[in-house]
Design a protein around this nucleic acid. Structure first.
Length: 589
RNA sequence: GGGGUGGUAGCUCAAUUGGUUAGAGCACCGGACUGUCGAUCCGGAGGUUGCGGGUUCGAGUCCCGUCCGCCUCGCCA
């Protein structure tokens, strides 16, 4: 080893010891006669000093050290003089008096300093990611990611789960997300697909008898990116045989408690709360509501239908909804301009045509539309909304879907702006009883809400023949702070029901056999009842770090256009490579 | 594919209604300094204002196109 200690290690107890440290020059302070350098490695920072009186040759070398030079120093660990300790450093009570200095690698002037003083724009950070990754905050994120992953593996190992790897080169299945394709050289004109998830493989492992499976699995989806979505991401993938829904929920409850205990040192109340999909949409407008704060959606349809405000009246007459939220004390926090322009634009993103609002003033409603409401109606609205002096009431009148998503967005924005929640809390809960299908009016068929292998809620089997839209799925999402943190279901293990689901999705027997024949076959050879779930590892790490962007917990992430600014991927390839793959390019010049 | 926002020195930013030689802090180079810890002080160098076109006596600023980053709708079983 080129070092005997790390830069985060030395304490008063080491005083008198001769130590050798290696690291990067984080800061230098040159006083001519004495030179201080903060030496940094992954473990921390240690102040080292060069004293002119001791060795002028090394002193001279030390004076020319610059940011990000990599050096090796040997010297004596000495206590700092009284009053000169640095409480900001863990090693701040000591320093290394250097006897010997070796410059292992002089650095070019770096494009930015990873000192955390100012964080550069993200394109610069990603282009020089190896420097960005020197920033202690990012290093902490990746260290936390490692710890969390280990907690997860240990938890499942204790419960007799086996980690089994599944292929990256698989068969394309056109449902769901767009596949990343890999052309086959050997089989002319054919393609592998990278896995969107190991879904079918893990179910086949259940058929094979590996009744408790888990995998830290890389997944790929060729869809547009978001702050919490990367084209390749990592799932904690889980599947169990001979279980019912609650068995899986209980196992994951335990995992969540274990993760929070290990990372945050907190005892977590189990079982996790459970809400229905319908409840979440009705009261929060979202199937992944942020429950760190209240401000629930309240329906005023009964009053809206009676009032003289045309938009409200017509909305109710058309069988749609008028719902709103009460922004406590918000009357003087949101100007007319913000409400009429910014907030209106926000709800317009979700298809809402407008945002109605009242301020509660002098026990009445104040607004440009207040005149359309009688005194009694105004009092009824105030009562229903729990309105008090100075409150701001916001309404969206539209279909259930549009009013839900628009109000949910408004709710989230206001909570963020008004700091209605403690960003350090984690509100984790289950959402159950999703619909099995959503009707696809363009294609005149049902689409699977979760995926086509999701089984039916035990109470709803009767509706499969009569009213498929009413059938609830035996599926479940785990929500944390407004993010989908996990999603899973009990699977269909009966080929007859599987076939019926395909029929409703307008997938013919022949088509199903052609696309999933191997899988349907497996179900016919003794498939046990089984179910599973997958947790988004990146999102969990992000939440534990308190971040709002998944890129900060991935060592080498892609930009929003799915490019790697550092390596230049994706790139063109040699004509020879293309030819070997039997591919012709058709690219717009 | 749509909407929003940004791109000025190595980095973070400023630059009035379009108007002198595009500035500051940090970094970099040189000098001073034996207890600093975002060291300090003195001096210096550093610019294709993302790129291309246009309007104008004059463009960082206005217009058109384009590239890139970020947020977002659609999309993501």
């Amino acid at each position: 080893m080129l070092r005997t200690r790390t830069c985060g290690e030395l304490r008063t107890s080491h005083v008198g010891e001769t130590a050798t440290l290696c690291g990067w020059v984080d800061k230098y302070r040159d006083h001519a006669g004495i030179v201080f350098i903060d030496l940094r490695d992954r473990y921390g920072k240690t102040q080292i000093k060069f004293d002119l009186a001791d060795n002028s040759e090394i002193q001279e070398l030390a004076r020319h050290l610059r940011y990000e030079d990599v050096i090796q120093v040997t010297g004596e660990v000495v206590a700092r003089p009284a009053g000169l300790e640095n409480p900001k450093l863990d090693t701040g009570s000591v320093e290394l008096l250097v006897r010997d200095l070796k410059v292992l690698n002089k650095s070019k002037t770096p494009p930015f300093e990873p000192d955390g003083q100012s964080v550069p724009n993200e394109d610069i950070r990603l282009k020089h990611r190896y420097i960005d990754l020197r920033r202690p905050s990012i290093q902490q994120n990746l260290i936390l990611r490692h710890r969390l992953t280990k907690v997860v593996r240990d938890y499942f190992d204790k419960l007799d789960f086996l980690e089994i790897e599944t292929p990256m080169l698989g068969r394309s299945t056109p449902e769901g997300a767009r596949d990343y394709l890999v052309p086959s050289r050997v089989h002319e004109g054919t393609f592998y697909a990278l896995p969107q998830s190991p879904q079918l493989y893990k179910q086949l492992l259940m058929v094979a008898g590996f009744d408790r499976y888990m995998q830290i699995a890389r997944c790929f989806r060729d869809e547009d990116l978001r702050a919490d979505r990367q084209p390749e991401f990592t799932q904690i993938d889980v599947e169990m045989a001979f279980v019912e829904r609650d068995d899986i929920l209980n196992v994951i409850d335990g995992l969540v408690a274990e993760m929070i205990q290990a990372i945050r040192g907190e005892q977590f109340q189990l079982p996790l709360r459970r809400y229905t999909h319908a409840y979440c949409l009705e009261n929060y407008g979202s199937d992944k509501p942020d429950m760190r704060f209240g401000m629930q959606l309240i329906d005023i349809g009964d009053i809206a239908g009676q009032c003289e405000f045309g938009v409200f009246k017509q909305t109710i007459a058309a069988g749609n909804r008028v719902r709103g939220i009460n922004v406590k004390g918000g009357a003087d926090k949101y100007s007319r301009r913000i409400l009429d322009v910014d907030m209106k634009a926000l709800v317009a993103d979700y298809g809402a045509k407008g945002l109605a609002y009242f301020k509660v003033t002098g026990g009445k409603l104040e607004s440009s539309i207040a005149k359309f409401f009688t005194d009694e109606q105004q009092q009824a609205i105030i009562a229903k909304m729990g309105g008090e002096e100075g409150d701001l009431l916001l309404y969206v009148a539209d279909t259930f879907k549009v009013s839900s998503s628009a109000l949910s967005a408004v709710r989230n924005r206001i909570a963020r702006e008004q700091k209605l929640f403690d960003p350090n809390t984690m509100e984790v809960f289950w959402v159950l009883d999703f619909p099995l299908f959503t009707w696809n009016d363009d294609e005149k068929r049902f689409d699977a809400e979760h995926h086509p292998f999701c089984s039916i809620h035990p109470d709803d089997e009767q509706y499969l023949a009569t009213d498929p839209g009413r059938v609830r799925a035996s599926s479940y999402d785990l929500i944390c702070n407004g993010y989908e943190a996990a999603s899973g279901s009990v699977r269909i293990h009966d080929p007859k029901i599987q076939q019926r689901v395909f029929e409703l999705m307008n997938i013919s027997n022949e088509e199903a056999e052609q696309r999933f024949g191997f899988f349907l076959d497996a179900l016919r050879y003794g498939a046990p009842p089984h179910g599973g779930i997958a947790l988004g590892l990146d999102r969990w790490v992000m939440m534990f770090t308190g971040g709002d962007n998944i890129r900060d917990v991935i060592a080498f992430p892609k930009t929003q256009k799915a490019a790697d600014q550092m390596t230049g991927a994706p790139s063109e390839v040699d004509a020879r490579q293309i030819r070997d793959l039997h591919i012709k390019l058709d690219v717009k010049e």
